[in-house]
Design a protein around this nucleic acid. Structure first.
Length: 261
DNA sequence: ATGGCTAACATGGTTAGA
C-alpha cells in the first residue's frame, strides 16, 4: 500500500517578487505540502498574496521593507500562526510559525552576522539565544516540531566547499556552530544527515566568481526536527534544479518528506 | 586581488547579503 508523504520545503528566494515564476515552476512538478520562504523582501502590504492564491497556497507572512521577511505557505490551511519570537522585541522580520496537519513548523531567517567584529554578529548570537528559548518551549508544546530555514550557519566543515578559506569567518565560527549545537542538544535533528548524501552538497552558492559552476558553496539551509518527527522522515534532499534557471536565487530549496501515518 | 554578483531603493550610488 502506498503512503502519502508529507513534504516540508525551505527556500531563501532572495526577493519573492522576483522569484514568483520560479516558485510556480518549482511547485508545479513537486508535491510539496508546506514551504517556508525567507528573504521575501516585501512588506505585508506589498506581499504577492494574489500570486500565492493562484498557486493554490494558503498561509501567512511576516515582512518589512527592503530586507528580511518570511512566509509560511501550504496546500492546507495554516493554523495558530505566530510572527516573530514571542517576548523578544526584534525590529527585523525573521520568524513565522504555524501548524499544518498536526506538525508545528518554525520558519526562520537567522541573521547573517556580516563579520565577527560587527554589531550584526553580536545581534546574531543574541538572536540565536532567543531562538533557543523559543524552540525549547515549542518542543514541550509540540512533539512534532520542524524548525526550517536559512540558518546562516554551516554546521560542520563537510558543509563548506573550502574549510581552510572559510576558517574563523562568519557562518562557520565556533560561537555560531555552538548555538546550532545548542539547538541539537535540545533534541532537534538535522535530518539531511540522517541519509546518505553526495559529498560537497550545498544549498547556497555565491553569485560572484561563478560560485555555482565551481560548486563553491555552503550548506546553510536546514531542516531540523524533533526526534518524533525525525523518526518519520523518509528522505531529505537539496534540489539544485532552480539554481540552473534564469535569474536564480543564490539559495536553492531543501525538502524533507515524512510518513505521518 | 577583500572584489566579483544580485536586489532594493532610486534613477547614481549605497546597503546588504554570505
Amino acid at each position: 500500500m502506498s503512503q502519502t508523504l508529507f513534504s516540508i520545503a525551505t527556500w531563501n528566494v532572495n526577493s519573492l517578487k522576483v522569484r514568483v515564476s520560479h516558485l510556480e515552476q518549482w511547485l508545479a512538478s513537486r508535491p510539496i505540502d508546506v514551504i517556508g520562504l525567507q528573504e521575501t523582501k516585501a512588506t505585508d502590504d506589498t506581499f504577492p498574496a494574489d500570486d500565492m492564491q493562484r498557486l493554490g497556497l494558503y498561509g501567512d507572512w511576516h515582512g518589512q521593507r527592503t530586507y528580511n521577511g518570511v512566509a509560511l505557505l501550504a496546500r492546507d490551511q495554516v493554523t495558530d500562526v505566530v510572527k516573530g519570537i514571542p517576548g523578544y522585541e526584534d525590529p527585523q522580520a525573521r520568524v513565522i510559525a504555524g501548524t499544518v496537519r498536526g506538525v508545528r513548523i518554525l520558519n526562520v531567517y537567522v541573521p547573517n552576522g556580516q563579520a565577527l567584529d560587527s554589531d550584526k554578529y553580536t545581534y546574531k548570537l543574541t538572536w540565536l539565544e532567543q531562538l533557543h528559548q523559543y524552540v525549547k518551549a515549542e518542543l514541550i508544546r509540540h512533539p512534532k516540531l520542524a524548525v526550517v530555514g536559512d540558518f546562516n550557519i554551516a554546521p560542520t566543515d563537510q558543509d563548506v566547499h573550502d574549510p581552510k578559506a572559510w576558517e574563523g569567518q562568519v557562518l562557520v565560527s565556533d560561537p555560531e556552530r555552538g548555538a546550532l549545537a545548542g539547538l541539537e542538544k535540545l533534541g532537534l535533528i538535522d535530518v539531511f544527515r540522517r541519509f546518505e548524501q553526495a559529498p560537497s552538497s550545498f544549498s547556497w552558492w555565491d553569485y560572484r566568481a561563478a560560485g555555482f559552476r565551481r560548486n563553491a558553496g555552503l550548506r546553510i539551509d536546514l531542516i531540523l526536527t524533533s526526534e518524533a518527527l525525525a523518526k518519520q522522515c523518509v528522505r531529505c534532499e537539496i534540489d539544485k534544479t532552480p539554481r540552473h534557471w534564469e535569474r536564480p536565487s543564490d539559495h536553492t530549496p531543501v525538502v524533507a518528506s515524512f510518513d505521518l501515518t
